[in-house]
């Protein structure tokens, strides 16, 4: 009885953490995209870069021990802040308008900068981690 209740509450807290993280992440993205009077492609790119950098920090700092914090910060917040579907929609709209180069550039820039920033931070963390041991 006690074990069942404990499992339920752990699952519920995890759901709550991901839900809240996703809600706050989406709110942060909306707060960047809606009021900024810049090109929406650039504001989505800024969200994706920021979210990717925060994701690797959350993944490195939390590791396997702080699972709930990782669920909130990485799965919830960073997942909510960044978006793949909007990039696809922007790319599809560009293709429909006959702007194939722009569509390629949207994917290439998002992918290149996000993967590169994660790789650089991860490599630096590995290097400093080894140096401090």
């Amino acid at each position: 009885m006690y074990i069942k209740r404990s499992i339920f509450s752990d699952s519920f807290i995890r759901l709550l953490a991901v839900f809240l993280g996703g809600a706050i992440g989406s709110l942060a993205r909306a707060a960047i995209v809606i009021p900024l009077a810049i090109n929406p492609l650039i504001s989505v790119f800024l969200c994706n870069i920021t979210g990717s950098v925060l994701y690797i920090f959350a993944a490195r700092i939390c590791g396997k021990n702080l699972k709930l914090v990782k669920d909130f910060a990485a799965t919830g917040f960073c997942g909510g802040l960044t978006t793949f579907s909007t990039v696809c929609k922007d790319g599809a709209v560009s293709i429909q308008d006959g702007e194939f180069l722009l569509s390629f550039a949207i994917f290439a820039l998002n992918l290149l900068f996000c993967v590169a920033s994660i790789h650089i931070i991860d490599s630096l963390a590995d290097k400093f981690g080894k140096a401090s041991k």
């Binding site: 996703g22 993205r29 994706n48 994701y55 799965t75 802040l81 990039v87 996000c114």
Partner: peptide
Amino acid sequence: TMGFSASASTFSAFAFQLAQMLK
């Protein structure tokens, strides 16, 4: 749109998984 569909997808985890595969 800006809530559900955008949040159901993720670019950070996608980029992280790609970076891990490359690593």
